[in-house]
């Protein structure tokens, strides 16, 4: 993290140079038109100042002038739109097989959960050269996970998963801010994102042998005896969970939904919300028993069930 002063932020992710390119293009347009307008105002203002001898007959009133300065700006802004949209679509298209890190935002704190089991508070260690997808949720108000060096931010909502992905390119320490005003300590909800080489990251991950989220999920699964209802192949009152993640789940009362993380979270915390077809809403809510981090661990376990099949 360079503490010396600079006019331009570092670019440390694959998307950053592309955003900078669009930014510099628009900056050029802005500087050009600002100077054009200011220049015209000053030159007309001085050349035609009151009492000057400049000739003033037949001032132009041509329709063509109006058309030019309507159509040209229109073309420029449409161009900006498409370039920006192209970069944005890539921002929002999650690459397949990205490393998934889970982040739970709370007032004054970012709790991070790595697939390798490592957990962090207000910091984030990521490897270079590999797409990383952050799945985020808030336990109270809306926050916003913002890494200026990656040119990326995404609001963190209570109750709904939001995600964004990046691929770090330059090792180093970068700022992490909360960009959405979230209360008294909003300005202190800061941290550092440390980008490391893949091997150094692997060593870091292995350092503290924390339980893998999948194992933590399995331990929670057994502690709450989920298996007593969710037996294999729908034998019990609850639907089978093996292979449920990613499948198309028919719902009671018609319709169907892809069982993504949001569906699994909602079904754990608010079971009767979207009951599977052919089953009754008997499952109690675990809203008061599980924290968001534990729900994420359970979901990691459920996902491992589908991969294992």
């Amino acid at each position: 993290m360079s503490t010396d002063f600079s006019f331009f932020p570092e670019a440390a992710s694959t998307i950053a140079p592309r955003v900078d390119a669009v930014y510099l293009f628009i900056l050029g347009i802005t500087v050009f038109f600002t100077l054009l307008i200011a220049g015209l105002i000053l030159s007309f203002g001085i050349h035609y100042r009151r009492g000057s001898k400049a000739s003033r007959e037949n001032p132009p009133t041509s329709i063509w002038l109006e058309i030019t300065w309507s159509v040209i700006p229109l073309i420029i802004v449409i161009g900006m739109f498409f370039w920006g949209a192209d970069v944005f679509v890539d921002m929002r298209t999650m690459p397949a097989g990205a490393m998934e890190i889970e982040i739970v935002g709370k007032q004054l704190m970012w709790k991070v959960q790595h697939p390798s089991g490592r957990a962090e508070i207000n910091t984030l260690h990521v490897p270079t050269g590999q797409p990383v997808k952050l799945r985020m949720i808030s336990e109270d108000v809306i926050h916003s996970y913002y890494i200026p060096a990656f040119r990326l931010k995404q609001d963190v909502l209570p109750g709904y998963y939001t995600d964004f992905w990046f691929e770090a390119t330059k090792p180093g320490d970068y700022h992490l801010f909360c960009a959405e005003y979230c209360g008294t300590e909003h300005s202190l909800m800061r941290g550092t994102v440390t980008v490391m080489d893949p091997d150094e990251f692997a060593r870091w991950s292995a350092q503290e042998s924390r339980t893998l989220p999948v194992e933590a999920g399995k331990e929670l699964f057994e502690r709450f005896r989920c298996g007593s209802c969710h037996k294999g192949a729908g034998a019990g009152p609850g639907p089978a969970l093996a292979g449920v993640y990613g499948s198309l789940v028919p719902l009671k009362g018609g319709g169907a939904v892809v069982a993504n993380e949001q569906y699994l979270r909602d079904s754990i915390l608010d079971p009767p919300k979207q009951v599977v077809a052919g089953f009754e809403p008997l499952m109690p809510s675990f809203k008061t028993l599980l924290s968001e981090a534990e729900v994420l661990q359970l979901i990691a376990y459920l996902k491992s069930l589908s991969v294992a099949e």
Partner: peptide, 13 residues
């Protein structure tokens, strides 16, 4: 609010 009573837990929210 707090005094809300609802038969079907699925749709209390």
């Amino acid at each position: 609010g707090t005094s809300f009573v609802w038969s079907n837990p699925a749709t209390i929210g």
